[in-house]
Amino acid sequence: MLTKLISISLSAILVENFIFSKFLGICPFLGVSKKMDTALCMGLAVTFVMTLASAVCWGVNLLLVRLELAYMQTLAFILVIASLVQFVELFLRKKSPALYRSLGIYLPLITTNCAVLGVVLLNVQESYGFLESVVYGITGGLGFLLAITLFSGVRERLDYSAEVPECFEGFPIALITAGLIALAFMGFSGLKMV
């Protein structure tokens, strides 16, 4: 069991990183990575919601299967995620206004972050148990956090120094940069500890 959890974590963070290998969560990855601090906040928030969503949707899926409503998965999951995000937003506003202010605008965006729905769907596809789902949620989120932090760091540095040709300014150079990082991450391909 432990070895399985370790291999899930390793895979989610390095080998099959949500951004650089699975292409889940590209919109916030490109959109919220201009500044290091906001990127970190976004990454943390996504990790949190991914973990929570993995846990809750595991239960929801169990219920759906029991009721023979498995075909309603997509609909049920997106509703669960949307309400979870709402709930987290309300909770934070009440309990930790400071954190709420720093995350505020990014929270609603997480609903439409395909990394969250993606991790939930993948959990079902791989028929992970509760513990495996939660671990996949956390580590998938950490993989996203790692990716967006690295990317925003590189981007901040490039903002200082790079002189990009006009037609590559903005999104194109960000995509090329992400591609080069994905190239470096390919070194981890096939990484197996056990």
């Binding site: 690295l150 760091g153 590189v154 901040e156 540095r157 990082i181 190239l183 470096a184 991450f185 390919m186 070194g187 981890f188 391909s189 096939g190 990484l191 197996k192 500890m193």
Partner: peptide
């Protein structure tokens, strides 16, 4: 990273990839 890739990765050599990955961390 070199040793990790040499021991556990699917590429035989980890030097180039490890340097590229550390390139990403220079700002940090």
């Amino acid at each position: 990273i070199t040793v990790v890739i040499r021991y556990f990765g699917s590429y035989p050599e980890g030097v180039s990839f490890s340097i590229l990955i550390m390139n990403l961390l220079v700002w940090l």
